[in-house]
Simulated assay, not measured.
Amino acid sequence: MRRTPAFLLEDEREVRRLVTENPWATIVSAPESGLVASHYPFFIDDEADGLTLLTHVGRPDETLHELGRHEVLVIVQGAHGYISPGWYGTEEFIPTWNHVTAHLYGTPEILSDEENLRVLGELVDRFEQRMPEPRSLAIDADYAARIARGTVGLRIPITRIDARLKLSQNKPPKVAARIIGALEGDGPYADPALAREMRRVHGDPHAAL
């Protein structure tokens, strides 16, 4: 990503939050056959010392990616959206795109069948806990184990982070406030999720008006 100092995201806690709130990510690798990209849900290994991701891939993706043999890139995309220059309240006419994005690098470790089944169970539980009647792989452990054999579990210790938090930090407070107001409105580019991220950075927009 373009290395703009004003938008660098270097706080690992914020990167962890980004992964937790946006678990559907893209894994990219460069095997001898050429670039390969796949999309899977990820979550953080809370028992690891550093930032470590857990996921799984469906067979034969582990072969296509040559997983475990080289570094991969995991792209995590948070809130993002178009920012119209008409929201600036000035004569500017150049638009931009605000976003929260992390590029996470590491070499995957292949999990054992037992570890993979445990990770799959935890993944299901993390999403099902919001449901009124949560389902679990424990309902039929034997059947779950058979299904799990069609997947390969991964643990990816992250060795390098390249993240951006581009939320109009380079604009005056009053302009940021107008942008947030437009994103919270009902226009064609309204985006409440992006507005919430901007509020985290800029605080109460009305205080600047």
Rank of each mutant, 00 (worst) to 15 (best):
L154P: 01
D61I: 10
H80G: 14
A138M: 10
G203W: 01
L53W: 05
G187V: 10
G86N: 14
R146Y: 10
V72P: 01
K171Y: 10
P173Y: 07
N116H: 06
A176Y: 01
K166L: 04
T4A: 14
R146T: 13
S38L: 13
D204S: 02
E92R: 14
L104F: 11
L18Y: 05
L51T: 06
E133A: 15
V36P: 07
K166N: 01
Y88F: 15
F42M: 10
R199A: 06
L167T: 07
I83R: 15
D46P: 03
E71L: 01
G185F: 06
L194H: 04
T151R: 09
A102W: 01
Q129F: 07
L137N: 14
L165S: 13
A182I: 08
L9A: 03
Y105S: 02
L165K: 05
R2T: 10
E184D: 15
E12D: 06
P188Y: 11
G50T: 13
E71P: 03
P172Y: 05
D11N: 15
R200M: 10
F127I: 11
F7N: 12
D186K: 14
S84K: 13
I179W: 01
I44S: 03
H103V: 05
T52L: 04
L123S: 14
D125N: 11
L53Q: 05
F42A: 09
A190T: 07
Y105D: 00
I44D: 01
E197H: 08
R17A: 14
E62Y: 03
I179K: 04
P95H: 12
L154Q: 00
W97F: 15
V124Y: 05
A144G: 08
G34S: 07
E66T: 07
Q169I: 05
R59Q: 07
D49H: 13
D11W: 10
R196Q: 14
G86A: 08
S38G: 13
N22M: 02
P95L: 07
L123M: 15
I139Q: 14
D162N: 06
G121I: 09
W87S: 11
K171H: 15
H39T: 11
A145C: 11
R196D: 15
L67W: 08
D46R: 15
H80I: 08
G121N: 04
S29I: 00
L104G: 09
L117Q: 07
P205W: 00
Q169A: 08
L167F: 04
E114F: 03
A102Y: 02
T55V: 03
A102V: 06
E128L: 12
E66V: 05
S38C: 12
H70L: 01
I156W: 00
A6W: 06
H56I: 01
H103W: 05
T52P: 00
Y105C: 04
T20M: 06
P31K: 04
R130H: 15
I75H: 00
L104R: 08
L35T: 09
P31R: 04
D11F: 10
L64M: 12
G78A: 09
